[in-house]
Design a protein around this nucleic acid. Structure first.
Lengths: 244, 244
DNA sequence: TAGAGATAAGGTCAAGATGACCTAAAGGGA
DNA sequence: TCCCTTTAGGTCATCTTGACCTTATCTCTA
């Protein structure tokens, strides 16, 4: 590796922050306050700073641009995007992160963004010109990652404020996958999965109907056996346009 | 995103190239010809060039450093590594790629590397100080990715030169997972999986025993249903020290 | 206060998948 | 020709899955 290849490339992080509000998947978007793409919607993000890792930059931007407490969110690296012309300012590579969280407060506008807001994912996808840069591609990749993570890992609990009921958890799967799942079979699966859920012993009494026991996330990170989205009472949602 | 945050960071790609030789998983390592870590083993890689994507750089390095034809290999992005002190030369971020291929020729030494060679993965893992930089971490992550990809995708066929037999394919799973699988049950699973394999109609007559029908990769990328490595006749290999 | 409505727990049952094991088929070599 | 080897494919008990039903326990309304 000789020095002559050095480019002095600019590196950013971008965040796909997903949450569920009113039984619909939402992503956090900011309105860009600067050129390029001034006034257009974009994923929150910013430049990597000298001494920090990409993960640190992602958590910092999360706090700076959205006021959200990064500690409460699930955060994972998605991948790097490096098309040479993806940013009109020049050579800028971005590393995208996927963040998942429970129903979060309306974010406060940050320094770089004139405005930040939760936008329903289906309406972002329905309007292909909405997002700046290659952020629509990033969002699509993030969505597919989130959907497949729900099958094999326990990240679905990241969408639920603790403690939560099994119905809460099922609604996460139904919303992200856009399917209806059989409540009985779903409960059988998640309660048998190894250390997925931990019963608190308490019950939720606020709603009508039989009180639901409350659970916390268990220590498991991987879901054994996995919860596959294929045959699973695959009645598709009919409410909104197709996601892909 | 204001310009003041620009860093002029150096970006490299690193490749974890895996193949199976003599029923053992091997990775391609190069001996470093330059400082830092001169003389130590490292993953093949190099600096990203001005007009190219990371994927392009990965394919270019694959060809340059190893003489391998990148078109025949499965190549996918793993993740970015960005610890501030991971490279003593300064701020260098690397994006790691995972490449899988059938038993490949002995590589020819490239320009940057004094030597390139296939090294059995267990012996790399058994000698933690062998690899330069954070390349052991990258290798471990790549291994785990490859193992889990075998469960849910059809990439195992990337290890087999076409055409291949079901036994060839089973040996891929056994080698990467370090398990013994029941041949009968394995065949039942892979032949029933949707568009995983395509029969050529030919048979392999070279070896003793009943001739095995030959197959090509099918168009499927995802494996439905998945092939999980848990109960699967989980007789562990007893040949070499544990991989993790 | 009794019932209606809502929601959750949990059972049943047929169909399918899985793991363990066995037998038959089809080649080469002694 | 008779073994040895390797593959194809069957069997069977057990477990899992999808579909559906009943019962339990709350709130709300008449």
């Amino acid at each position: 590796m000789s020095r002559e290849h050095q480019q002095g490339i600019d590196v950013t992080v971008d965040l796909v922050i997903l949450t569920i509000r009113d039984s619909e998947l939402h992503a956090l978007l900011v309105e860009r306050g600067n050129e390029p793409y001034r006034g257009r919607q974009a994923l929150p993000g910013g430049f990597l700073r000298p001494g920090e890792t990409l993960e640190h930059a992602a958590r910092r931007e999360l706090k700076e641009e959205t006021g959200l407490d990064a500690a409460r969110l699930h955060l994972e690296q998605l991948r790097a995007y490096s098309e040479p012309n993806r940013d009109p300012r020049g050579r800028v590579i971005t590393v995208a992160f996927l963040a998942l969280g429970p129903d979060l407060p309306i974010p406060t506008a940050g320094t770089d963004a004139s405005d930040a807001a939760w936008v329903p994912v289906p309406s972002i996808l329905a309007e292909p010109g909405l997002l700046a840069f290659d952020h629509l591609t990033i969002l699509r990749d993030a969505l597919e990652r989130a959907r497949s993570q729900l099958e094999y890992t326990t990240v679905a609990t990241a969408f639920c404020p603790e403690p939560f009921t099994i119905s809460d958890l099922r609604k996460v799967y139904e919303t992200v996958w856009r399917l209806k799942l059989d409540p009985s079979n779903f409960r059988r699966k998640v309660t048998r999965a190894d250390r997925f859920l931990e019963a608190t012993g308490e019950r939720r009494l606020t709603e009508p109907g039989r009180p639901a026991p409350l659970y916390r996330r268990g220590p498991a990170h991987l879901l054994h056996p996995p919860l596959l989205r294929e045959g699973h009472l695959a009645r598709l949602h009919t409410t909104t346009p197709a996601l892909r």
